[in-house]
Design a protein around this nucleic acid. Structure first.
Length: 492
RNA sequence: CGGGAUGUAGCGUAGCCCGGUUAUCGCGCCUGGUUUGGGACCAGGAGGUCGCAAGUUCGAAUCUUGCCAUCCCGACCA
């Protein structure tokens, strides 16, 4: 493993790749477009997943699991959705291999084993789920149906990037059914808020809640709500989406219920998801040229203790002290590791744990023991301080909260500094090119203008913020009247 | 799927133009020793179908053709 990381200024993309690979989060795999999530990266995902799962359960949802394969006839039932995903579907056509008579020891697809009906590998599960819900929903008493699943999905992308865009990725998808339109919309917004709270509170990443324009909307949805985050290079990243699906899937799959008046009605639906892409967002928002910076609340390791000793005679004493500290920290629920391996030296360990973004490092040697102190280094600011061993666990516990807050405030300040209003076309393109970030501008509300702006600048409308203030203005491109500003940015 | 580039040990590479002993160097790895307050040092050692296949040749990492894979730039996308 090379010691050198590419700096952000030198090559932002390469910096990102270096962090993922050298930080031990993931690896390239033998399969084109697919990655291996390594134990450290998966531990991070597990922490995110577990917290989200708690939040879903608190809001009344339960988990279930639906098949990976979707028969083509089901997949195509909701036309807009099918059309939206058609270009990136992997399809299973055969169910057997056999020995290749031409090439000894090689296998070939058995042409005799062609499937009657092709199976689409889910790019998302609406089709298989709504086909199932049809049988589960008969009466208003069966509603609402609030189900989530943790799963993998496959979208055959032309170009991939670790965590941000891979052919297979992990996510959760919530699929709910409701008796009324109002209730479904309420659910859509509720889950958007859950996402925003999770991302801001646990990932320390400020987001803008908004609604997508028709162009950017999920295929098959009536409305797509989103949370948008800003990366350090000034590009926006969609961190989560929540869709109000109207009755589109209910009608496509004939999901009706008898209401209290004994009349058949189509149910109202939502779906919502976040994926391992969030890990990419986390990396690009917080990390620096020394490596990853992971917020304490989701960090696989929150504290690492590194002993410093001369010769073997001082080691047992340091071990004993370190174990005492570990016990105290664990009692406070802190995820701590004592790295007393003698296969690498302290300096190497320091660099390694900085690369991996462990929020707090405690170093202790004989000198510290004599003074009843330890050296505490925080990853986010690189500050080092000498801290008394008395009450150390409380100090660390508070420090972790402070780090969480510092990381969030830093990201928030950066985000806020990088939302700029543009009142003319010249100003608009100048801001996009020179400053990046979000540009807040008037738009005439037509897909044509949005498309034109995308062609000219590569910037898209990231969202119409939910709390948007209404103001008279004219579209930056067309000059037509507009009632509000929307957020533009170049995006991942 | 178009345009460009690259494939040599786990990683990064030299050699290729101009074919010729046992394929270079660094990191990492293994053994022993000395070390340990910011990526240690010394000595010894292991590790290779030179992406795959065919061709040219007395002889191919090197030349030719085909294939495969990866990366970058486009179109597509969470």
């Amino acid at each position: 493993m090379s010691k050198e990381l590419t700096s952000r200024a030198e090559d932002y993309s390469q910096w990102y790749n270096d962090l993922v690979i050298k930080g031990g989060l993931a690896d390239y795999s033998a399969v084109r477009g697919c990655m291996v999530i390594k134990p450290y990266g998966f531990a991070l995902w597990e922490n995110m997943r577990d917290q989200l799962d708690r939040m879903f359960k608190e809001t009344g949802h339960v988990n279930a699991y639906f098949p990976l394969f979707v028969p083509k006839s089901l997949f195509e039932a909701e036309e807009k959705n099918a059309e939206g995903f058609a270009k990136e579907c992997a399809v299973v056509t055969h169910y057997r291999l056999k020995g290749d008579p031409e090439k000894k020891g090689k296998l070939m697809v058995d042409p005799e084993a062609k499937l009657e009906e092709e199976l689409v590998i889910r790019p998302t599960s609406e089709a298989i789920i709504w086909n199932t819900y049809k049988d589960w929903i008969q009466s208003y008493r069966d509603l609402p149906l609030l189900i989530n699943q943790w799963a993998n999905v496959v979208r055959w992308e032309m170009r991939t990037r670790l965590f941000l865009r891979t052919a297979e990725f992990l996510w959760q998808e919530g699929h709910t059914a409701h008796a009324t339109k109002e209730e479904a919309i309420e659910e859509t917004v509720k889950m958007l808020n859950v996402y925003a709270e999770f991302v801001e509170t646990y990932m320390a990443l400020p987001v803008i809640k908004g609604v997508k324009t028709a162009n950017e909307r999920f295929a098959g949805a009536e409305d797509t709500y989103c949370i948008e985050a800003l990366m350090q290079d000034g590009k926006a990243l969609q961190a989560g989406t929540s869709h109000f699906l109207g009755q589109n899937f209910a009608k496509a799959f004939e999901v009706q219920f008898l209401n209290k008046e004994n009349k058949q009605e189509y149910v109202w639906a939502t779906s919502w998801g976040v994926s391992t892409r969030l890990i990419g967002a986390l990396i690009m928002a917080h990390s620096d040229d020394q490596g990853l910076i992971i917020p304490p609340r989701i960090a696989p390791q929150q504290v690492v203790i590194v002993p410093i000793y001369k010769g073997d005679e001082s080691k047992p004493a340091i071990d004993a002290k370190a174990n005492g500290i570990m016990t105290a920290l664990k009692a406070k629920g802190i995820r701590v590791k004592y790295d007393n391996s003698d296969t690498s030296r302290p300096g190497w360990k320091f660099a390694q744990y900085e690369l991996q973004g462990v929020p707090v490092r405690i170093a202790m040697g004989l000198r510290d023991m004599e003074n009843n102190v330890v050296e505490v280094a925080r990853r986010d600011t690189k500050e080092k301080s000498s801290v008394s061993m008395d009450g150390l666990a409380d100090h660390i516990s508070n420090l972790l909260e402070e780090i969480q807050d510092t990381i969030y405030q830093r990201a928030l300040a950066f985000r806020n500094e990088n939302i700029r209003p543009a009142n003319s076309w010249n100003e608009f393109i100048q801001l996009l090119d020179e400053k990046a970030g979000f540009v807040s501008a008037h738009w005439d509300g037509t897909p044509e203008t949005e498309e034109k702006i995308k062609e000219l600048t590569k910037a898209t409308i990231r969202c119409i913020p939910l709390d948007n203030k209404q103001e008279e203005g004219v579209c930056v491109l067309s000059g037509k009247p507009s009632t509000q500003r929307v957020l533009f940015a170049r995006a991942y």
